[in-house]
Design a protein around this nucleic acid. Sequence first.
DNA 1: ACCTGAACACCGTTCAAGT
DNA 2: ACCTGAACACCGTTCAAGT
Lengths: 222, 222
Amino acid sequence: MGAKIQRTDRRSDALSKKRIVGVAIEILDDAGESALTFRALAGRMATGSGAIYWHVSDKDELLAAAAEEVVTPFMIKIGGGRPREAIRLIALGLFDAIDAHPWVGTQLSRGPGQPAMLRIFEGIGGRLLALGVPERALFDSWSALVNYIVGVAVQNAANARSHARGTDRTALLATVATQWSQLDPCEYPFLRQVAAQLREHDDREQFLAGIDLILAGIGTVG
Amino acid sequence: MGAKIQRTDRRSDALSKKRIVGVAIEILDDAGESALTFRALAGRMATGSGAIYWHVSDKDELLAAAAEEVVTPFMIKIGGGRPREAIRLIALGLFDAIDAHPWVGTQLSRGPGQPAMLRIFEGIGGRLLALGVPERALFDSWSALVNYIVGVAVQNAANARSHARGTDRTALLATVATQWSQLDPCEYPFLRQVAAQLREHDDREQFLAGIDLILAGIGTVG
DNA sequence: ACCTGAACACCGTTCAAGT
DNA sequence: ACCTGAACACCGTTCAAGT
């Protein structure tokens, strides 16, 4: 402060990266990834499509910022409780965020430079340190957990995206389960067999079961 | 045979879904995902862009078929050895396939209906059965493994895509490691700390380490 | 049955021109 | 400094017209 000028927007409808990202999230949530267009964005903000480029350099930057906006809040909320519990909270936070905003999954799968990704990486890593995982097992353990968590998140998002919006996870599972139960029994005996379990299970709980499985594996090393 | 007419292409340059998918893979490998255009495809095949639609209904179908073409061969080759070893072979097969064709990663992350995905799901599931994993642990174990394997595959592909083609995994790791080592030490202490290990490690070996970790976790249940 | 290629309805991005 | 909106160089997809 002092030398630096604090520039707040004088008009409430002034353009800013913050507002643009906010409206982008609205469009993504309302109408899906394909609906996010610079023209649509400009239309909703009552401005020209080129104006957006003054505040945002790229569509990539816009999407990365939108994803970070969704991921950051729940990562901050987690705090410093028991590390095992914190890991589960991070995982569930991401799970729920992607449930509400499937497009975040696409974004996460676009590279490791994503700021949203870095926050998750760091969050898990710090908790494994706190958990007392021995030095030699730390890197492999971290990598396995992070890959699992992000992997499930991305696949869940893909599931959600591949069906019409509005259908919830339960209805969606039923669809996939039906598909699997109709597969060729010679080529796909296993998938046919588990189709029934797929229909009954709860995605969220099973996601946690996977994390516990990996933590159990980590435990065998420590 | 008999009633059914065996229709082979009379001219060697006749259009067919098989040839179209082949050329699509060529383009994807040579020049990346953004280069695969119906116009580029038509250009290389010396035909009109609309002609392709006679054999392929969609760009989605084209990409799914291309991914399946890459995944199927190594899944077939694996055969019925020791199940633990077979699981590793499936995982490594996918790893190497995506190393050679990063665009397969994008495709895999596009939904669970992908035929390429189904083959992997089935392959892992069958081996867990053969491994004697108890009924009650089977579904969670399968889901954790599959999610991990596909998750790593997709993220690896994203890594490869986010940098120029030609740079190999080792050079790429160095880039990411450098980025991480320059992160804000207050916000990202863990990532800064593991940046050095990231530079040294071998992606492939560590991928296997993750699988072993999950298998170890599965072992604690059985 | 299969192929042609112009046409349609879009994109992201740029940039001279305005305020 | 910030915004406008036409223009550019593309897309995927369709479809009348050809063979």
